[in-house]
């Protein structure tokens, strides 16, 4: 389990998938993001947009020893925009949403823009 805590009522466990969904949603809400793609497709170079319910496939979350999280996002972007700015905003938004939703510390958000959809 990615997050486990115990309080007086019992334990709380949150899976990496759940965090992945929040991260995916945060990133899809960003301007200029076309869709998330399956991280396993990177080698194929053929990308199919992930549908709702599959977002965790486009997100990779890892926890290091200090309980800090490293998030990787795999996306396609919209055409005709200033891409570095968009990616910057994605990093900011995803980090902010995760820290707010789960009270976890996000050390890194790595964005992989695999292609630009025209």
């Amino acid at each position: 389990m990615a997050i486990s805590k115990t309080n007086k009522y019992g334990t709380i466990n949150i899976s990496l998938d759940a965090i992945g969904v929040v991260a995916g949603n945060a990133c899809l809400n960003c301007y200029g993001v076309y869709c998330l793609v399956n991280k396993k497709q990177i080698k194929d170079k053929v990308f199919t947009p992930l549908k709702e319910g599959e977002y965790s496939k486009g997100v990779n979350i890892e926890k290091d020893k200090k309980n800090d999280y490293v998030v990787d996002l795999y996306l396609l972007l919209a055409h005709g925009i200033k891409i570095p700015e968009i990616l910057n905003e994605v990093q900011k938004k995803v980090r902010y949403d995760l820290e707010k939703a789960f009270k976890i510390k996000v050390k890194q958000v790595n964005v992989h823009a695999l292609d630009v959809a025209k």
Binding site: C30, Y31, I81, K82, E85, I86, E89
Partner: peptide, 10 residues
């Protein structure tokens, strides 16, 4: 263009 709003404005 700078930031989200800047990109949208552009």
């Amino acid at each position: 263009a700078r930031g989200n709003s800047g990109v949208i404005t552009s």
